[in-house]
C-alpha cells in the first residue's frame, strides 16, 4: 500500500467534509476568529503598554544641578565616578550654554518667556546638570544615596529626592501592569481555547457514526484522524486570515484616536511594519488551536 495514495485520500476527505459541513465549518471558523481576535487584541495592547512603559522608564532619571561657577573639571570627574557604578546606564552632561540653547529652542514660539530671558541680559540663569539614568529604574534610589553620601561641594541640588515618591510609585505601577497583563492574557486565552475546542468537539460528534464504521472496516487511527487534523488546519488558517485582515481597518481607526492621548505611540505604522509577523503568530496559534482541538476531541472515539 502506497503512502502517497493514503495521504491523497486523507486530504480529499478533509476537503469534502469541510465543504459538505458548510455551516459547521463556518461556525467553527467564526468561533476561532473570535478567539484569535481576543489573542491578537491582547498582543497589540501589550505592545502598546510596553512601549508606554519603556518610554516612561527612559524618562526616569536623577538630575544633578551644579552651583553657579562650578568648574567643569569637577563636574566631569563626578561624571566619571558615576559611570563606574554598576547600575548606571548613562550619564549625560549638559553645560549651562547647551541648557540655555535647548531652553530657547523649546520656547521659541513663546515671546513672554524669551522677553524675560532678554531682561536677564548676558547672565545665564541655567545651571550645569548631569542626568543619570539607571539600567533598572529601581536602582535610582541607591545611586541617589551614593551621591548624598559623597556630599560633593559643587552640587547645588539632587532632584531625585523631590521625585522619589513619584518614581517609586511608577516602578510599582510598571511591575503591576506587567503582571496583570500576563494574567489577563492567560485567562482570556484559556476561555477562548475552551470555546474553540467545544465547537470542534461538536463537529466531530456529528461524525461519530462514520468514525465507528471506519474502525470496523479496519481503518487505522491515523487514517481516521488525518482528515480531521487537516480540517483543523483549514479552520485555523482561514480564521487567522480573516482575523489578520479584520485588524487592518480596526488598527487604522484606533491609531487615530490613540495618537491624541499618546503622541509617542504610532500604532498604525507599528502594525503595518509588523503585519507579516503578526499574521504568522495568528496563523500559528490558529493552526495549533484547530489541530489540537481536533486531536483532543477525536480521542474518545478512537478508543475501541
Amino acid at each position: 500500500m502506497a503512502k502517497g495514495v493514503t495521504l491523497k485520500r486523507v486530504i480529499t476527505y478533509a476537503w469534502l467534509s469541510f465543504r459538505r459541513n458548510g455551516w459547521l465549518s463556518t461556525a467553527t471558523i467564526l468561533v476561532m476568529v473570535l478567539t484569535l481576535f481576543v489573542i491578537g487584541g491582547l498582543l497589540l495592547v501589550s505592545v502598546i503598554a510596553n512601549t508606554i512603559l519603556n518610554d516612561l522608564e527612559q524618562k526616569i532619571d536623577i538630575s544633578i544641578a551644579f552651583k553657579k561657577g562650578a568648574p567643569e573639571s569637577a563636574i566631569l570627574s563626578i561624571r566619571r565616578e558615576l559611570e563606574a557604578l554598576r547600575p548606571v546606564r548613562e550619564v549625560a552632561y549638559v553645560s549651562p550654554e547647551e541648557a540655555l540653547a535647548a531652553f530657547r529652542e523649546r520656547h521659541k514660539d513663546d515671546p513672554t518667556v524669551l522677553a524675560s530671558l532678554e531682561e536677564l541680559g548676558e547672565e545665564n540663569p541655567l545651571p550645569a546638570t548631569l542626568a543619570v539614568k539607571a539600567l533598572n529604574p529601581e536602582d535610582l534610589g541607591e545611586i541617589a544615596k551614593f551621591l548624598e553620601g559623597k556630599n560633593y561641594p559643587s552640587v547645588e541640588k539632587i532632584n531625585y529626592f523631590e521625585n522619589q515618591k513619584v518614581i517609586e510609585r511608577l516602578s510599582a505601577a510598571v511591575r503591576g501592569v506587567r503582571t496583570a497583563g500576563v494574567a489577563i492574557v492567560l485567562i482570556l486565552g484559556f476561555v477562548a481555547v475552551l470555546v474553540a475546542f467545544n465547537t470542534v468537539r461538536l463537529a466531530i460528534y456529528t461524525s461519530r457514526e462514520e468514525i465507528n464504521i471506519m474502525k470496523l472496516v479496519g481503518a487505522t487511527n491515523w487514517y481516521i484522524r488525518g482528515p480531521f487534523m487537516i480540517e483543523g488546519v483549514l479552520h485555523g488558517g482561514i480564521a487567522a486570515a480573516i482575523t489578520a485582515l479584520a485588524f487592518l481597518p480596526l488598527v487604522w481607526f484606533a491609531s487615530g484616536k490613540l495618537i491624541v492621548f499618546l503622541p509617542g505611540v504610532n500604532l498604525s505604522s507599528y502594525f503595518r511594519e509588523n503585519f507579516v509577523e503578526f499574521s504568522l503568530i495568528l496563523f500559528a496559534i490558529g493552526i495549533i488551536l484547530g489541530v489540537g482541538s481536533s486531536l483532543l476531541a477525536i480521542r474518545r472515539y478512537l478508543k475501541i
Binding site: 500500500m1 502506497a2 459538505r20 464504521i213 472496516v217 479496519g218 481503518a219
Partner: peptide, 28 residues
C-alpha cells in the same frame, strides 16, 4: 462485519460505501 441496522453511511452512494472500506485498507 454485517449488522442488523446495516451501518451504511447515509452521505455516500452504494458504490462509495463499498469503496470506502477498500480506501481505509489502503488499496490503490
Amino acid at each position: 462485519m454485517v449488522f442488523q441496522d446495516y451501518k451504511l453511511l447515509a452521505s455516500k452512494t452504494a458504490a462509495e460505501n463499498v469503496s470506502f472500506a477498500m480506501e481505509a485498507a489502503g488499496r490503490t
